[in-house]
Computed example of a mutant assay.
Amino acid sequence: MSHGHGPANRGRRVLAMAAPLFVREPDGEPRGGAVVLHDVFGVTEYAEEVCRALARTGRLAVSPYLYYQRGGPAFDAGELGAARGHMAELTADDLTADIGAALSYLRARTTGPVLVVGFSMGAHLATWAAARHELAAAVAVSPSGVGSSPWPGVPPTELLVAERRTPWLGVVGGADARVDAGLLEMAVRLPGPAAAVEVIAGAAHGFYRGGHPEHDPDAAAEAWRRIGCFLETKSLPSSIDR
């Protein structure tokens, strides 16, 4: 069962509202929270299933509908052009409010640790959150925005890693021509909270999710295994059944 919460007030802006949330409740009292930031295709079944998986670990999991001002659509893999058009219309101000509102919702519901996980476009935004907030952990799968950012006011991913205030893990496909893992690996060596880059051999950019032409189930399973290991080092629930 999903719940649409919001839209919440976007701080001091009078008319604009923060994105409503897809919410998955854990069984029992939440042991923490998680924000899931979707890829270019929107809050698809994949993003919803990641929320469900995180809820099974005892977390209250939410995914903001970042495209909600445009009707909140989700796209399939054959609609990449339309999806990119929606992504390009996002602004730093609105993204700041949407991510901040999701974090505020979780902090109002649980006193446990809060993490953020994102995919492609959402991985760039998860890294941005890690540079702006002190969270339990941030996970960025196939992060876009390496070398350049599509949004004025949002720095490139590698610069955000260098400015991190939160432990950060990047998961990159070894055959992903869109992500310069070397830039990320240089950034994680800079002083700050623990950070690492995990390279999944042979995986392309869209390896992580079903329905994408580049989906690789074995690579996706290996990525989640490594994510679980990373969360264990932060003493966070890690048995994510994906």
Rank of each mutant, 00 (worst) to 15 (best):
V35Y: 01
P30A: 08
Y68R: 12
R164L: 01
E49T: 15
I227D: 04
Y46M: 02
H212A: 14
L103Q: 10
V172H: 13
A16M: 11
L90P: 11
I200L: 11
A195Q: 00
A136R: 06
V40Q: 06
D218K: 14
A55W: 10
G174D: 10
G58S: 09
L21W: 03
V154I: 15
S2M: 09
R84A: 05
A77I: 03
E163L: 09
P7C: 11
A177S: 15
E198P: 01
R70Y: 13
A203C: 13
A8F: 15
A131Y: 02
S2I: 14
L231Y: 07
I240T: 15
G42H: 01
D98Y: 12
E232G: 15
D180T: 06
V146H: 08
A55Y: 09
N9R: 12
G81N: 09
E45Q: 13
A130V: 01
H38V: 10
R132D: 03
L190W: 02
M186I: 06
H212F: 12
G173R: 04
L115R: 11
T91P: 04
V114Y: 00
V139R: 08
A82W: 02
L95S: 06
G28K: 13
G202R: 12
S148E: 12
A204R: 13
R189I: 00
R10P: 00
V197I: 08
D76S: 13
G182T: 09
G174A: 08
S238T: 06
L184N: 02
T111R: 14
R31E: 11
K234Y: 00
F207D: 04
A88Q: 10
V197G: 01
I227L: 08
L115M: 15
R59E: 10
A47K: 01
D27G: 09
R84H: 07
G58F: 05
R189V: 03
V197E: 01
P217Q: 09
T57F: 02
L60T: 10
G206F: 03
V116M: 12
R24K: 09
D39N: 03
W151N: 00
E214T: 07
D241L: 10
V188W: 03
G42C: 03
G72K: 05
E49L: 14
L54Q: 08
G6W: 04
E79R: 14
